Simulated assay, not measured.
Amino acid sequence: MFDVHPVSIIGPGTQPPVLVALLGTFRLTLQGALAPIGSGSKAETLLSHLALARQRRVPRLHLLEHLWPDCESTLAGQSLNSLTYRLNKLASKSLDGAELVTHEDGYYSLNTESGVEVDIDCFDTWSNAGKRLLQSGHEAEGLAHCQRALVLYRGDLCGDSSICTVIERERLRAACLDLLACLADYYYARRNPAEAMKYIHRLLAHDPCREDAHRQAMRCYVRLGLRAQALRQYQICSQALRVEFNATPEPATIDLYDTIRLDPASV
């Protein structure tokens, strides 16, 4: 049931002993190997729930109601015991005998003290560290951290549609877009508009209404000698805002468009 297969999620030499991944699709990796836990299974639901609640312990009764809402409490309790036993046995070797899911005084949690990590925390750590390093002039190390964060962000946070999950999903999505914008600004400032455009395209693919990205794209096209494309980018921005929000571009976007149209050399 729990065969594992090698898979690269973070990178050589950087894999934690156990990683619970929620960005994109759910994944559980053990020493870099993927455990094929079925999509929508009770194991996925339990680990996802504990991962999202990793900063606090979850009451046993809450898990029983969440996982087996229509089941008699005694049978549900037996099912939870069996599920945690199998998961802990699966991860035991990777954690040097420690448990993946701990249970104490009626509360459950992921055993983060023994090496269990969640990809959300890795993404936040690498993204924030990368931006700080870039700002402090440690460019090579900063770029490496940023790239590691982007590789880890395989998609928006998976999970249910509860308000807490929705809020966390939007926070992470915004953080990823801000990281893409940061890298675009970095390369533009170093007169590498072609590289900056790679990140701008990725950003706009996720959020077509992000005006700061449209403006940076317009500036990049001017530097690349593509004035007509810069003007078309303004039209794309205007259309996206009109369709999505029935809104017009900000004054800063209009001013940049007029500058490119009348005096592109000053951009």
Rank of each mutant, 00 (worst) to 15 (best):
Q15R: 13
L180R: 02
E139K: 10
V243I: 14
L95W: 09
Q233E: 15
P251E: 12
D185R: 02
Y187S: 00
I120M: 01
L80I: 07
L95F: 03
Y107L: 13
N111V: 05
L172M: 07
V18Y: 06
Y108E: 00
L143Y: 02
A194W: 08
L63M: 06
A129Y: 09
H66F: 11
D207G: 06
C122P: 09
Y257G: 00
Q147I: 05
I9N: 10
R191V: 07
L152C: 08
A189F: 06
G155E: 07
G24A: 04
C209A: 12
H206E: 14
L19K: 01
D212M: 00
L30S: 01
I236G: 10
S161C: 15
E195M: 00
K89Y: 15
R190H: 12
S109R: 14
Y187G: 01
D212S: 10
R215W: 09
R132Y: 09
L28E: 01
C220K: 04
A196H: 03
E104V: 11
R57H: 15
A240D: 05
L179K: 05
S41H: 08
A196N: 09
S73C: 11
R60F: 04
S48L: 15
V166I: 15
P69Y: 06
H49E: 13
G137H: 05
G142V: 02
E250Y: 13
L179S: 04
D263R: 14
Y186D: 05
R223Q: 10
N81D: 07
A43G: 11
L64I: 07
Y199K: 03
V243L: 15
I167S: 15
L30E: 00
G115W: 05
R202S: 02
R242W: 13
R57M: 15
R56N: 05
S39Y: 04
L90P: 02
V18T: 00
D185S: 02
S79Y: 14
A175W: 09
R57K: 15
E170R: 15
A76G: 11
G77S: 04
E211I: 07
A91G: 06
E104L: 12
D255M: 12
A21G: 13
T25Y: 08
L75G: 01
A252H: 08
Q55R: 14
T84R: 13
L224K: 08
N111W: 03
S161P: 06
Y107Q: 12
L67Y: 04
P16S: 12
P59A: 14
E170C: 11
D255V: 09
V18F: 01
E244T: 12
L150H: 02
S114V: 13
F26N: 06
G137M: 06
N192I: 10
R261H: 04
P264Y: 09
R56W: 04
D263F: 14
R219E: 04
V267E: 08
A144W: 05
A265G: 12
L46T: 01
R60M: 11
R154D: 00
T112P: 01
S82P: 07
L224Y: 01
S238D: 15
P16L: 06
G225P: 03
T102P: 07
N81K: 13
N81T: 11
E250P: 06
A189I: 08
R173S: 14
T29I: 06
